[in-house]
Every structure is written in C-alpha cells, then in structure tokens.
C-alpha cells in the first residue's frame, strides 16, 4: 500500500457515497446510466471472486465487500426504489460492444488459463470502459447536475491515482502488471474530456454544459 493507491481507493469510496447521496437527496437517479452501474456490478463480482478463496488483508476484504454491496444497492435504488426517475430511453449505449471485446481480450491476455484468471482479466478490461454508457449519456444530454459531475470526478480521480501507484510500485518493488497498467491508462484517458470541462467550468462555479 502506498499513498497514491490509498487515496485512489478513498476517492473510489467517495464517488460511491456521492452517487448514493445524490440519489437519496434528489430522490432521483436522473442523469445516471443504469448500464454503467450494471457493468460495475459485473466488474466487482468477476474480480472479487477471490474473496471466496484468498485472503489479502482486512482492508482489502472490507473494501471488496463494500464495492460489491454498494454497487448492488445502487441497482436496487435505480430499478426499484426510484424506478420512475430512471429513463432508459436516453441510456442507449450498446453494452454488448463492450462486453464482447472485453471477453475476447480476456481470453487472449491473462495470467493463466483458469476461469478465475480469465474473469479477473475480463473485469480489468471491462472496468476500463464501464464508464462509457455514462459518458455517452452525458454527451447526449449535453449537461449534468453538479453532484453527478462530482461523482464522475471522484471516480476518474480514483483511476488517475492508480497511475502514480504503479509508477511507485515499479520503483519500490520492481513490479509491473501490464494488463492492469494498460487498461488503467485507457480508463484514465476516457476521462480527459470530462476532466477538462469539470476543471474549467464546474470548479469555477458554472454548470456542466457541453458546447452544442
């Protein structure tokens, strides 16, 4: 554990709390892509299967359980509790274009041909693109509630902080995970446009609006 990874994880936690807070206080999941949230459940469940057979640390265990539980809870909020506020007609990204290629990539690039290894790889690739339905929805509507942008910023900060974490681990442990690093760079890259608007508009007190 190093400071980059720790604050990355904290940022990830914060993003989830921000999202749940937004849904509860506005009593609405407007502006949130259900598809992206489903993909996160798939990411966490496939990656954290190792909860069943390996122990890393209490920190690791608690975080994994939290990420699985909170992502399922968000699906419940969107599909049951605040169902009328969820508008599938603007959540139109075709997730099969993400899941299919990620499955193929996982079969090619993995650390061993075991079901758990391929699923781990799959979860890494899928996480790197899971935000796309959400960003696509944002692009379509052209604007977002400020709290939704804070959610996305915290989520983007999480993976951004993992990059210095890997650089640190390379120098301190001589350790590189090419699958995680490649997917992580892609994932962070997807946030660059969003970050630009977030820093130049939202943090200056303006509404998040994309140019027409």
């Amino acid at each position: 554990m190093n400071i980059f990874r720790f604050f990355g994880d904290i940022s990830h936690l914060a993003s989830i709390f921000i999202l749940i807070h937004k849904i509860h206080t506005s009593r609405s999941c407007r502006g949130i892509s259900f598809k992206t949230q489903v993909l996160y459940v798939a990411v966490f469940v496939t990656r954290y299967l190792d909860l069943l057979y390996s122990w890393v640390s209490l920190y690791n265990f608690v975080m994994k359980v939290f990420f699985i539980a909170s992502s399922c809870y968000i699906l419940y909020l969107m599909k049951v509790r605040f169902r009328p506020t969820n508008d599938p007609s603007i959540d139109t990204f075709r997730v099969e274009y993400l899941v299919g290629p990620c499955a193929v990539l996982a079969l090619i690039f993995n650390y061993g041909y075991a079901v758990t290894e391929v699923l781990w790889s799959f979860s890494i690739f899928l996480e790197s693109v899971a935000i796309l339905p959400q960003l696509f929805m944002l692009q379509r509507t052209g604007e977002a509630e400020t709290i939704t942008t804070h959610y996305l910023a915290a989520l983007g900060a999480y993976r951004t902080l993992y990059i210095p974490n890997w650089i640190y681990r390379y120098f301190s442990e001589g350790y590189v995970d090419p699958i995680a690093v490649t997917a992580g760079l892609v994932q962070t890259g997807l946030y660059l446009d969003f970050f630009y608007v977030y820093f130049t508009k939202v943090l200056q007190g303006q509404k998040f609006e994309l140019p027409a």
């Binding site: 190792d50 890393v56 975080m63 650390y111 061993g112 781990w120 993992y162 890997w166 995970d177």
Partner: peptide, 10 residues
C-alpha cells in the same frame, strides 16, 4: 498467476 498481476489492488 504469474505473480505479476496486481491481485492485491482493488
């Protein structure tokens, strides 16, 4: 695994 994967990360 090869020991190279970052399974201890979240």
């Amino acid at each position: 695994g090869s020991g190279q994967s970052s399974k201890d990360e979240l």
